[in-house]
């Protein structure tokens, strides 16, 4: 917001720095921000007052969630596992798709611009669509079920992994690339012996990271009918069985935490 006062080193006539810079610059950003906030508040009728009155209602809802309905646990186990399955397959297939795209997008691999530019554009387009939107679309196309959810995650993970990996490839040490070109390696050989050894640990790390994100995402895919635990959550909430919703949320948290922990453990060994 605060425009950095630029040094004006060579202005002998006006004695630079002797007078304070105009103040309007400093305040302009804040005034714009406040104006935007007021406009937003009017548009959505969301006011600080509502914020304060809404929170107690949230509290009473939370109160209804306890004690959780433990007897529901066996019923939700299979859908929970389905959620993990969706995440595993979605992440892996997305990662497979991401490899060629990342290689084609990286500017240091000397791919012709007529290929790399369109590839990057498609990548950027895919990245604008959130996971749940993909899921809603695939459910409409393929019908309700985990397959639609998996496809949604394939596209979603493809966007994340391709972006992160191509940035990692662009950041690799150019030395081995030159060495391989110098010994007369063709492009595939360069990739195999100079790029992959350097980029693979990053790729694996991003894969695991995306898997963590996807387990969370898969847990809510069911809300739009794309399989997994989300469907039961939606149903429990629809029937006002907050004690059941609670046990679903708790189990999800436990699974997410276990996977986060395991994945963080492997990632630390990779990098």
């Amino acid at each position: 917001m605060k425009a950095a006062p630029q040094a004006e080193p060579l202005q002998p006539a006006s004695l630079p720095g002797m007078a304070p810079p105009p103040k309007y610059k400093r305040y302009a950003g804040w005034i714009v921000l406040i104006a935007i906030l007021i406009a937003c508040s009017i548009r959505t009728e969301v006011t600080p007052y509502q914020l304060i009155t809404g929170l107690p209602q949230m509290g009473s809802l939370l109160a209804e969630m306890f004690p959780p309905d433990w007897s529901y646990l066996p019923t939700i186990w299979a859908p929970m596992m389905e959620t993990v399955q969706i995440a595993v397959l979605g992440t892996s297939l997305g990662a497979l798709l991401a490899i060629p795209v990342a290689l084609l997008s990286a500017s240091n691999l000397r791919v012709s611009r007529s290929v790399s530019l369109p590839v990057r554009m498609v990548l950027n387009l895919v990245r604008t669509i959130p996971d749940l939107l993909f899921a809603a679309i695939f459910v409409a196309v393929l019908g309700i079920g985990p397959f639609a959810g998996m496809l949604a995650l394939v596209f979603f993970s493809f966007g994340i992994i391709a972006k992160l990996t191509f940035e990692a490839i662009e950041a690799i040490d150019p030395g081995p690339l030159e060495a391989m070109s110098a010994v007369g390696g063709n492009r595939l050989q360069i990739i195999r012996y100079a790029v992959i050894p350097q980029a693979l640990p990053y790729f694996m790390s991003y894969l695991l990271y995306t898997f963590e994100v996807n387990v969370r995402a898969a847990a809510v895919l069911g809300l739009v009918g794309a399989g997994g635990i989300g469907l039961l959550l939606d149903r429990s909430l629809g029937l006002f069985r907050y004690d059941r919703a609670c046990i679903i949320i708790l189990l999800t948290l436990v699974i997410v935490l276990i996977i986060d922990y395991g994945s963080a453990l492997i990632r630390r060994r990779l990098l």
Binding site: A4, P5, A7, L15, P16, G17, M18, A19, P20, P21
Partner: peptide, 11 residues
């Protein structure tokens, strides 16, 4: 360094 009063310190 009176003339530096309104310059950022890191410069």
């Amino acid at each position: 360094i009176r003339e530096k009063a309104y310059v950022r310190a890191d410069q």
